[in-house]
């Protein structure tokens, strides 16, 4: 799918440029100039990435993510009705959600994978290749992007010279809460139907 889109962009450009006689400026120079701009953009935001992931590591080491996970517990217990409330699976899920909420995507993935292993260990499916209800819910939540602080996006906006890089935070929170709620509702609906 990604292959088709990426190749499609380039081929559509080459064909259009050939038809309009702009092969040099429209393709050759465009490719090399844009590639150079790509490198400049990454360099411009490397500083912010380094600083932010440093902060993220301190948040992890100080147990701040653990504390947030405890606060989130009552909210997320009803979302995973099939799990033991004090079990290791729900604990790992809460850590994953807490890291996502803080916008620490890098820290969220290890917690998420730990949660998947715990969920596999207590799965009620006969075939170990079939996803359990709780697994689907965890994934649906992650793909919907539960975020409260879109830290990396703010960093990119700052690097691009925004006069107010964080101004998109409220709209981002509203959109991600809405789509997450929608995903959880849809999951609950389809879960029952496919039983």
């Amino acid at each position: 799918m990604l292959n088709v889109i990426w190749v499609g962009l380039i081929v559509a450009g080459v064909v259009t440029a050939a038809l309009t006689g702009r092969l040099d400026a429209g393709v050759t120079r465009a490719a090399f100039e844009s590639a150079k701009l790509g490198v400049e953009n990454v360099i411009a935001m490397t500083g912010v990435l380094i600083f932010w992931l440093g902060i993220a590591r301190v948040a992890e080491a100080s147990g701040l993510i653990e504390s947030l996970a405890r606060v989130l517990r009552p909210v997320f217990r009803p979302v995973f009705p099939s799990l033991r409330p004090d079990g290791p699976a729900l604990r790992a899920i809460l850590l994953n959600v807490a890291a996502n909420v803080l916008g620490l995507g890098q820290a969220a993935t290890p917690f998420g994978l730990k949660a998947m292993r715990e969920l596999q260990a207590c799965s009620d499916q006969e075939d170990p290749a079939v996803a359990s209800d709780a697994m689907v819910t965890l994934l649906v939540m992650n793909t919907a992007g539960v975020t409260l602080i879109p830290a990396t996006v703010i960093a990119y906006r700052a690097a691009a010279g925004s006069h107010d890089p964080a101004q998109i935070v409220p709209a981002t929170i509203a959109a991600s809460l809405g789509s997450t709620a929608f995903a959880l509702a849809l999951d609950a609906l389809l879960r029952r139907r496919r039983r």
Binding site: W6, A12, A30, L49, F51, G54
Partner: peptide
């Protein structure tokens, strides 16, 4: 953070080049 910047560099360059062609060609 430095690792991450290095890892995203190829993605960003590949997409910038494809988009640059797609835009500047008039497509």
């Amino acid at each position: 953070g430095l690792d991450l910047a290095g890892r995203i560099l190829p993605y960003v360059v590949s997409i910038f080049a494809a988009l640059g062609i797609f835009r500047d060609s008039g497509a």
